[in-house]
Design a protein around this nucleic acid. Sequence first.
RNA 1: GGAGGGAUGGCCGAGCGGCUCAAGGCGCCUGUCUUGAAAACAGGUAUAGGGAAACCUAUCGUGGGUUCGAAUCCCACUUCCUCCGCCA
Length: 423
Amino acid sequence: MLDIKFIRENPEVVKASQVKRKAEVDLVDEVIALDEERRTLILDVETKKAERNSVSKEIGHSKDPQERQQKIAAMRELGDLIDSLDKRLKVVETELKDKLSAIPNIPDEDVPLGESDKDNVVLRTVGEQKQFDFEPKPHWELGPDLGILDFEAGVKISGSRFYVLKGAGARLQRALITWMLDLHLKQGYYEFYPPWMVKEEVMYGAGELPQFADNLYRDHLEDFWWVPTAEVPLTGIYMNEIIDEKDLPLNLMSYTACFRREKMSAGKDVRGMKRGHQFDKVEMYKYCLPQNAEIELDKMVADAEATCAGLGLTYRVLKQCTGDLGFKAHKTYDLEVWAPGAQEWLEVSSCSNVGEFQARRSNIKYRPEEGGALRFVNTLNGSGLGLPRTFIAVLENNQQADGSVVVPEVLRPYMGNLEVIRP
RNA sequence: GGAGGGAUGGCCGAGCGGCUCAAGGCGCCUGUCUUGAAAACAGGUAUAGGGAAACCUAUCGUGGGUUCGAAUCCCACUUCCUCCGCCA
């Protein structure tokens, strides 16, 4: 959510942002008009409330019964008027909030212009695309051949876009999760294990609702929404809280499963385990001062890169263009790893600075050390990393001619020193 | 799932229809005193919105209602605690 004052004072900036994002430009004028009406109503209704309060006090002190009755009658009438104005105000405020919530974050000036993810800018590529002296298999062949990945079983019990990891496969995934968490622990992140279902207001606060309701799973009897990312509960934990400036930045991390309907990508990436309805992810998250957001984002990208590098994966860092930039994001870097079997770059991390967009929705502020008014914190989130795609890359990059897969050295201690996964 | 009791400012806690738009205490900040500190004393100390400002309005778990007027009365919900039941 953007600051209504900012929109009021800089309508052209917001409109330009809407154009860049191919979002609705008229929304800006609608919001400004509603804000105007809202403020006029507030002025009116509050003047009347002030009058009612003072006259009511007079009634309490008044001894003359006739004067009392007269004033009570007048205030009854004024009260009715206040009621109707309050009702109108509420309608206007709800509408304003709805429209305001529908405006995406303003991209950083540094974000390149572009239409789609094809226009994202590659900043650097680390490592070489591995060459094989045999035809490398894609993971959807490699995994089943090794007996560690079972698509049929997933479909049987849950339907399409589900799979089952078995034996060394299940163990490899668990090793990846634990190793990643341990790595981020060394990088200075504090671990949380949050609920995987949250209330609607938390989904709203994190910027998922109402925009992305289509992509979320929910319980149909109670107010439970399955998290699409740990970013959601990690934002919710500090909802309505005030953080002391000296405690910033807060570097948090969490492992959760993530649940997404993937309606938008129906028919896309159906093969293999690249895009499922349920996937695991280790997430990094930061609360920081606005002036430090940029540098904290750089650190987070470096921390995610260290994860790819630690596994010996070839990866590249991209800067998202305006056409690909998420609704909430002010600026985003993507990390992609090379999958030699599937012959494609796989997005394993997306590190974003969302500015105060989520903090405003979730009401998360900090108390400045020099005093003065409370201010909204900035929040950052980044995967470190998404599990299935990392799993794919590990499998495909470390395969050998005989169909076995060498376990990356850093993971061996987490797998009972297993060196090679064989059929 | 059943029964009962709570939810008040950074924290503790009083209030139970107008004299409290929140007493008192703790903590914190400033000042006096002091070489400095402590103590003592004095003053200050919530958030949001509107307004050029003076100032006004809202907020006592949340949402409704009664009333000229609600922290206070009524209804619903949320949540915490105690006990019982069930349970990994």
